[in-house]
Structures are given as C-alpha cells and as structure tokens.
Nucleic acid binder design. Structure first.
Length: 477
DNA sequence: CGCATTTGACCTGCGC
DNA sequence: GCGCAGGTCAAATGCG
C-alpha cells in the first residue's frame, strides 16, 4: 500500500478536513484505485508508514479542531457583543426615561408657579427626541398624559434601537405603536451627532466606511463649503456624515484617500490642518474592522453623554484610547470629548487636534448659562504629580487654574462647593456610570488609594471611559 | 453604460 | 409671518 496523495508540502486541506485520505492499492494486478478510508484506518496506516506522518496528521487534525472551536467562539462572542449592546442601549434609554419622567414631574410642579421657566429643561429633551411639531407638551392640561406617551415612545425607541428588527416584528400587531416606534427609532439614530476634530496631513480622514456625497453647501461666514455624505455600505443605511471643505477640488486633485471611498477636502476654517467630520446615526450593517474601532469609540462617547449628562448642556472629558486615535491624529493620542446640547441635537465632539499630554485626562465642564463658563481639570492619568514623587499618588491639577499644582481633592472640593450645578452634574454622571449613589469627594479619595494599589487601574475609570472592546453595534459611523 | 459627484432648487427649522 | 440658513433632493454632468 502506498500513499497516493501526499504532496511535498503536506496534505491538502480538503482531505484533512474530511478526515479521509485517498489511497491507491494494487492487489494481484487488480487496481482497486482510490479507496477512501476512515480516520481510524488512516491513523493505523500512517503509523505503519512512520512517525512523521502521524504527528503531522495529528497536528493538522488538532489545528482543524482548534479552527472549528475558534469559529464557534467567534460566533458566541458576536452574540455576546450584540446582547451586550442591546443591554447597554436598554440601560441608556431606561436612564433617559427616568430622567425624562423626573423632568416632566418637575415641570408639572413648576408650571404651577412659572410656566416659562418650567419649559426650558423640557426643551432640551424635546429637541433631543425631535418630537417637534407633534409636540406632546403643548397642552398644559395634558402634560401628565403626554408624559406617559413620551415614555411609551422612549420605550419603543429603546426596543427599536437596542434589539433591532426582531423586536420590531414582535409588535407589528399594533400598527400605530409600530409607527411611533419607527419614528422614534429614526429620531434616535439620526439626532445624536458625533463630531471629530482631527489634525491630519491628508485631505481625507479614512474611517473605513464607504460614503456617497449627496450635497454641498457653503455656510455663511465660512469660506469652506460643507459637504454631506451618506453611508453607501448598507442598503438604506441612515448614517450621514458632514465635513467642511477647505476648497472645492475635483477628486483628481485631492490627496489619495486613506480609507474606502472618495471624499472631498475637509478642514477647520480657523486651522486648515484640522479636519472636522460629523457623524450622525447608526449603521444598519456590519462594519469593516477599520471603521469598527472608531465607531465603538464614538458610540461610547455618545453613550457617556446620553447616559450621564443629558440634562447638562456642556461637559467635556477625555477618551484615553491612543491606539484608536493615533491613526487619525499625529499630534495627540487622546481625544477631548466635548458634550454639548446644541439647539438641534446632542453632539459629542472628539477633539483630536488639541496637543494634549498623552498622560492627561482633561475634564471640562460649563454651566448651562449662555456664557458657557468652563472649568478645566486635566488630571494625571498615572496618578502622580510630575514634580512630586510622593509615594501616595494623587491626581494633581496641573493647568488652567490659578491654583496650580494643588491637590485634586482640594481644588475639586472648592470647585464643587462653589458650583452646585457642577456638583449635581458630577453626581449624576458618576451615579449613572456606577449604578449607585456616590459621595463624590469621599469616593475620590478612596479611589485614589485604590488606584495606588491595583495594577492597571486607570484614574480615568471613574470618568466615562471607552470599554476596551466595545461591540460594533450602535455604531455612529 | 453605470455609478458617483455636482449644483441649483426645494424643504424645514429657527429667530426676529 | 417673513427671511435666513442649514440640510436634502434630484436632474445634470463627468468619469472610468
């Protein structure tokens, strides 16, 4: 018996996968040709032919088994990721629902005293929901009932965005409910916006997605036209992207694209080396690896905003994800995320153009006043003062305040004491992240002591941070 | 010929 | 109510 098919480089994949081999035998001049044998026989035969074949075959079989297991694990991981995202979305909207109902209750109470003032906080929520003309809040006497309707809408949106079309199909029996859900789903997917400021030598910011340009407009007072792109990777993908063009060049004159697809030049008006790209909506299709990382971070940033700061109009934190952003900005490997409640929609601005120290966490907050008073709290990520080798590392205020190099606790305590809204906002944000009420100041100290003793603990973790492997659903790219 | 971009018209929201 | 500005549409155009 001789092994008919065994190439010099080894067994073919097909043969190994089928765990069969093909043999040719000659028995008394009668060629039995190719006989396919089971793996057991094969193993015995190979044992007769020598140890190298047996080991190689065993290794290949193990490799195939590992591959199969890997595939199974991959699919399991994808499922877990999807479920995780669905749960995250559910939590977010439950929080929003809670905040909205609280706000409505407050409004109803305030309306008895001053209706105009009571309308203001609702405006943000309403704008966020984009209820617009069909406002459920127009009637004073119906506000309680309207609150219930809004909550239903939010719940429907929760289901729509968190669990996708499967859940949608479960409630098709109620046509009106489905219509409302579709609307609210669209609302959520379209209204929240993530803007990225990135310093780049290239004319295009490759994000791994395919975009189709559908419009261009020149903004008043800005010589740079703004271009509008629609995601063309999926059918009817709702994601849109807009950029400010430095100049209107034909594609042939533009720099070579980094990613897939073609884009126009897009620059910040004040700084022509800065690209400003705004994303809006959620992809309804799987993303390529290149786009997934950015999508996960932008969605994480937005989740931070939606989960903890929906009632505040402006707040900033830093997203420490150097691997992700290094491809987008050659200056800074951190992103300063600015959360703002604009007139039209909540916006998260990831500023990669700021020349920040990589080891610094910047926390910025502004009041809800029109003046947008801002406080900067850049914190050392590694928890120690660069000029102080204290064995007990404490984050230090290093910049932007007159009280330079004061202990974080002292300065934050002062800042919180001076600004009740900051205190409330911090409390809300931290509570939403940890799921439990917290004493900010006390926990700050305890966390710092924890951080000094635990490996890999990031002082940022008390701030909204990007999960290491955020699923790519709920993307914003 | 098909696809992507361009560009003027149209729509919509907001401020006065 | 009106005008403005931003956003979108869709026919025209260009390119491979």
């Amino acid at each position: 018996m001789e092994v008919k098919q065994c190439s010099g480089s080894g067994w073919s994949n097909a043969e190994v996968q089928d765990e069969r081999l093909t043999f040719s035998t000659k028995n008394g001049g009668v060629d039995t040709n190719f006989v396919q044998m089971g793996s057991t026989l094969l193993s015995l035969s190979l044992n007769n032919s020598g140890p190298p074949f047996t080991q190689m075959n065993m290794l290949r079989m193990k490799l195939e088994e590992a591959k199969k297991e890997n595939e199974i694990l991959k699919s399991m991981l994808n499922q877990v990721n999807e479920h995780c995202t669905a749960l995250q979305n559910r939590i977010l909207f439950e929080i929003q629902q809670h905040q909205l109902s609280s706000s409505l209750r407050n409004n109803n109470h305030d309306l008895q005293g001053n209706r105009k003032d009571a309308k203001k906080p609702m405006l943000h929520t309403r704008q966020f929901l984009n209820i617009g003309k069909s406002s459920l809040l127009d009637s004073n006497t119906e506000e309680c009932a309207s609150a219930e309707n809004i909550e239903k809408k939010i719940l429907g949106r929760n289901v729509a965005c968190g669990e996708g079309e499967n859940i949608n199909s479960q409630i098709t029996s109620h046509e009106e409910a489905k219509h409302t859900e579709d609307q609210t789903s669209e609302i959520t997917c379209r209204r929240a916006k993530v803007s990225i400021r990135a310093r780049s030598d290239f004319s295009l910011m490759g994000d791994g997605c395919q975009w189709r340009k559908y419009g261009q407009k020149t903004a008043k007072g800005n010589p740079c036209p703004r271009a509008y792109y629609r995601c063309s990777m999926g059918t009817a993908c709702p994601v849109r992207k807009q950029v400010c063009l430095m100049k209107t060049l034909p594609y042939s004159q533009a720099d070579a694209p980094i990613g897939i697809g073609k884009h126009h030049v897009q620059r910040c008006f004040k700084d022509e080396t800065v690209l400003i790209t705004s994303y809006e909506g959620n992809h309804n299709h799987p993303l390529p690896e290149a786009a997934r990382a950015l999508a996960s971070s932008t969605s994480a940033a937005l989740n931070m905003f939606l989960s903890g700061s929906i009632t505040s109009s402006h707040a900033t934190t830093t997203l420490p994800n150097p691997h992700l952003f290094s491809s987008l900005s050659n200056i800074s490997s951190t992103a300063v995320a600015t959360f703002s409640q604009s007139a039209t929609c909540p916006t998260v601005t990831l500023d990669l153009a700021q020349p920040l120290n990589n080891n610094c966490l910047q926390f910025q907050r502004a009041t809800t006043s029109q003046n947008h008073r801002q406080s900067f709290f850049p914190l050392s990520l590694h928890g120690h003062h660069p000029q102080n080798n204290s064995k007990l590392p404490l984050p230090i205020i290093m910049l932007s305040t007159p009280e330079k190099n004061l202990d974080l606790v002292d300065v934050v305590t002062q800042a919180i004491a001076k600004d009740p809204s900051l205190k409330a906002s911090l409390f809300s944000a931290i509570s939403s992240l940890t799921g439990e009420p917290q004493n900010i100041i006390d926990d700050n100290r305890s966390q710092q002591s924890k951080s000094s003793s635990s490996d890999g603990f990031d002082p940022c973790s008390k701030m909204p941070a990007i999960p290491p492997h955020h699923p790519y659903t709920n993307q914003l790219l």
